[in-house]
């Protein structure tokens, strides 16, 4: 359906996106995963024809979008990272406004508004001023506006940032339902790997403007098939313990959090006894040491040496 070919964007001294190749097939949910500042928003702005790339091409149905963006714009819906709504208008007025912008009129506009309000669960709040909505409700309406003209492709730029878990689940379920029922193609960007794992058929991982991995969830997890992740938990860390772990030649990656350390080690090596021994030598009290099923977070750690949320 849409394809990015060697797409790059440079801002003065910074190369925000570096020769990215990516494709999206009709009807699939594709995840674009990466930490803050990875270049996700820049990439999707170029994909949506809102930003001109420095080099490369965006092709929609095999035709360059750079030369003629209109065919793509007709079928695209955009959910920006910020709340792109008129906060002094009601939910219904916002939908009517954006509906009119899309040349919807009269009964058709009313019908679509009803449908969208139903889909995003805001029918009862249709007459409420958006300014008084909770963060989750605003996010839902932000998505609803993009669905109004029934786009074939919807691009969601971190649509769940800063909202409560309940609203997040609602949004994720809505996206899944849209894809299943309306066959809507979705490009979903996030730095929450669990969202991407839940929603997406295929995933692209972006870091510092580079595409560092792509494939289905399983294919990506297979990247670390020769390795495994271990989770070490404790109430606090002794500096010496952490230093010794970092210096261990068998540990390829390590990520230290307040009460958990994740280490990536070769699959054939039994590190349990080695970790217990280091803990005894350094006086580190441990709560547990467990083997983890590899997650996208572990893959990112493996590939970059950093956690997604660093």
């Amino acid at each position: 359906m849409i394809e990015l070919v060697d797409l790059s964007k440079r801002y003065k001294q910074t190369e925000a996106v570096k020769k990215v190749n990516l494709f999206i097939e009709r009807g699939e949910i594709v995840g674009l995963l990466g930490p803050n500042g990875a270049g996700k928003s820049t990439l999707i702005s170029m994909l949506a024809s809102l930003l001109e790339p420095t080099s490369g091409d965006v092709r929609f149905q095999k035709k360059s979008v750079l030369r003629n963006p209109q065919p793509l714009r007709k079928v695209i819906g955009m959910v920006p990272q910020d709340i792109a709504l008129y906060e002094d208008l009601t939910a219904e007025e916002n939908l009517h406004f954006f509906g009119r912008i899309y040349r919807l009129k009269g009964k058709e506009l009313k019908k679509k508004t009803e449908e969208v309000l139903e889909q995003i669960g805001l029918t009862e709040h249709r007459k409420d001023i958006v300014k008084r909505f909770s963060g989750g409700m605003k996010r839902r309406l932000n998505i609803g506006v993009a669905m109004l003209h029934e786009p074939e492709l919807i691009i969601m730029d971190e649509p769940t940032v800063g909202i409560d878990p309940q609203s997040r689940n609602y949004i994720l379920e809505t996206v899944k339902r849209l894809n299943e029922e309306k066959k809507m193609t979705v490009l979903y960007t996030s730095h929450y790997m669990e969202e991407v794992e839940f929603l997406c058929d295929r995933i692209y991982i972006l870091d510092k403007g580079n595409l560092i991995a792509s494939g289905t969830k399983d294919e990506i997890k297979d990247i670390i098939s020769l390795e495994r992740a271990l989770s070490i938990k404790a109430d606090r860390w002794e500096n010496e313990f952490v230093t010794k772990l970092k210096g261990n030649p068998l540990i390829s990656r390590i990520h230290v959090e307040e009460k958990e350390i994740t280490v990536i080690v070769p699959r054939e090596v039994n590190m349990f006894s080695a970790i217990i021994q280091i803990a005894e030598e350094t006086g580190q009290e441990l709560n547990s040491v467990n083997r983890k099923d590899p997650t996208l977070e572990d893959v990112f750690l493996h590939l970059t040496g950093r956690a997604l949320r660093d």
């Binding site: 702005s45 949506a48 024809s49 809102l50 714009r73 007709k74 695209i76 819906g77 955009m78 920006p80 990272q81 910020d82 709340i83 792109a84 709504l85 008129y86 954006f98 912008i101 899309y102 040349r103 506006v145 993009a146 003209h149």
Partner: peptide
């Protein structure tokens, strides 16, 4: 502010 919030992006993608 509407440009920063993405409202204009939405309008650019529309027939407006």
């Amino acid at each position: 502010t509407e440009k920063q919030a993405g409202i204009w992006d939405r309008m650019i993608l529309s027939p407006a």
